[in-house]
Design a protein around this nucleic acid. Structure first.
Lengths: 332, 332
DNA sequence: ATTCTTCCAGAGAGCGCTCTCACACTCCCC
DNA sequence: GGGGAGTGTGAGAGCGCTCTCTGGAAGAAT
């Protein structure tokens, strides 16, 4: 195939200098209209596209943003639309800003250093870390190295790192309050992993609401996978057969819990009410349709992107969540 | 923050020329051991990382691969783990090759040209197009421009473009044959979109198998979404209430179909047997667990990546599919 | 001892672009 | 009408790297 035309060629064809051609291409206003026109025509005719490598070399910008999913997240990845939503949201904003999205699913070994190396390397103008683990050291390291970083989810230790989080505790509170209002007495929870902020906050929301309502907490812990929901629900049933409601920290586990309940002959919602969290598409199609806490992962992705592109007012954002009531918590 | 060290700095510290430092860093063997050692130490001490832009500028390679999802695919994206699987598979191999993955979800407008511009621009060493639409003009355009392209899914018109496909028709045949063996008489299908190869091939598999078994075909068409499965199943029931089996072209629609059947008071598998396609995680958790055709999207992703990196023997690959029998097709 | 290889290191060009600086020109005001 | 202000264009340096080409040293062959 023929070689790509360079700026030089464009300039020659338009009868101007390389500098002027560059100015036109980068949209400087200080160029005479007819010259701008000539350059644009030359660009058109030659099918010129700027060489990004050359451009980055001098501008020190990469025009791309890295989106990092740490390994533990990618395990769930396949079955949890949360991640797909974040990707879509990020992608929308990145595209709007005319930048590129570099996706990094960090493998088990060395993935960590790979990201560090890559990001501190001028390859990327910013990094979005979709880690739900507050303890991840990567954000701090990159920040220290001068790379703009935004985290999805509030970091564990309070610090000044920019983040976008969901109102996990608020959502959990509303979910549990809903169960209390329905007159449920023994309200258990299947919590998420306690090394993830989302897991911790949702459990806290459960605890806080329960404490105010004269009920005792009954807790099992899962890891946000469907299968762990199945198992945790079994434990719960074994611990306390009288349970009449469960708040599950995500929909995937709730779907698993539904299955265990069905297998154990418990009717939902008549015997046991179930609330999930996330409002993934499958929740509406569950049997019975699942009451859940809605969050917009696409919106989260958008905000993450906007924040790392420095388009956002605040540096720490908490997105609202909303209770969506369906069959699984109808009054008995 | 302090400036990143350059090759120059490393060379100075090691007391060698830039050229030699470059040789060491790029793993040339023709360097004296003690010099190699000295350079490596300098790299270590300075925390040197090569500037990719500068490197690309001279090598004309980008060390990155684009993975493109056309808009229609991204719509389903959120709810269909297929895409997550492909991403994971591609990511694994890309990482192994020490390259970067640039993800492009092409928006509705102009996204098409954006990819073309970006890819023909030396930004990328190859493009993987996760389009299931055989008619997509992008692969041909990019190929003509000299960019290595691999498609997921066989292109519509027979040509020499490299692709990785699933054995869609074979899987469909086995699924329908299974239904026939179970003694089902009125076997309907919910087909996928007929502008996607996967949709076409799966329908053909259904048709072919049915033709050999003295049964007539009963067809509704969906678009691979859950909701379309709900609707298509309703149509099918209206068209022929005596239906005793349905082959659904993907699991998401099958899940929708299950819901309609439940709503219509049909027992699965007693009244109607249901087979899906894909074996997404949710299939095993359906009520009843769904018989389906398994395909490995992760494997597909890996092969796509290997192919675009030119690590694969053949240029056209069809991956096997496998029937997974669960409750939804148990003999009545 | 001399020439021929072989091997290793350095000098230097140049990848395609941006951006500063200098320069030429027009316009306007005192 | 001369000096400044303002505006548009070009020359040229240089971003950080790779790679060819050249030269010198060391070893092999005559």
């Amino acid at each position: 195939m023929r070689a790509r035309p360079t700026l030089e060629k464009v300039a020659a064809r338009a009868g101007v200098s390389r500098a002027t051609a560059s100015r036109v291409i980068n949209g400087s206003t200080r160029v005479a209209p007819q010259i701008r026109e000539a350059v644009n025509r030359a660009v058109e005719e030659l099918g010129y596209v700027p060489n990004q490598a050359a451009r980055s070399l001098v501008t020190q910008r990469a025009d791309s943003i890295a989106l990092v999913f740490p390994e533990p997240a990618t395990r769930v990845f396949s079955d949890d639309p949360t991640f797909a939503g974040i990707i879509r949201g990020v992608s929308m904003e990145i595209e709007k800003a005319d930048k590129q999205l570099v996706l990094m699913l960090t493998g088990l070994e060395g993935g960590y250093q790979r990201v560090e190396r890559y990001a501190t390397n001028g390859h990327v103008d910013g990094v979005i870390i979709a880690s739900m683990h507050g303890t991840d050291p990567l954000p701090a390291i990159l920040t220290r190295r001068g790379v703009p970083v935004v985290c999805s989810g509030r970091p564990g230790a309070p610090n000044s790192l920019p983040y976008v989080d969901m109102d996990n505790s608020g959502g959990a509170e509303r979910a549990v309050a809903h169960l209390v209002e329905q007159g449920r007495r023994r309200i258990a929870t299947i919590a998420g992993p306690q090394d993830m902020i989302a897991g911790i906050d949702r459990l806290n929301g459960y605890r806080d609401t329960l404490r105010d309502s004269d009920r005792r907490s009954i807790i099992a812990v899962g890891d946000f996978t469907r299968e762990s929901g199945v198992i945790a629900m079994r434990q719960l049933l074994a611990d306390d057969p009288e349970i009449d409601a469960v708040f599950v920290a995500n929909d995937l586990m709730a779907l698993g819990a539904l299955r265990t309940l069905r297998g154990a002959g418990r009717r939902v919602p008549d015997d046991v009410a179930v609330v999930g969290f996330d409002d993934i598409p499958a929740a509406a199609y569950a049997e019975p349709p699942l009451t859940t806490v809605r969050q917009s992962t696409v919106e989260m992705g958008r905000r993450l992107a906007r924040m790392v592109l420095d388009l956002e007012e605040k540096a720490q954002l908490v997105l609202p969540t909303e209770l969506v009531v369906r069959e699984s918590t109808k009054k008995p």
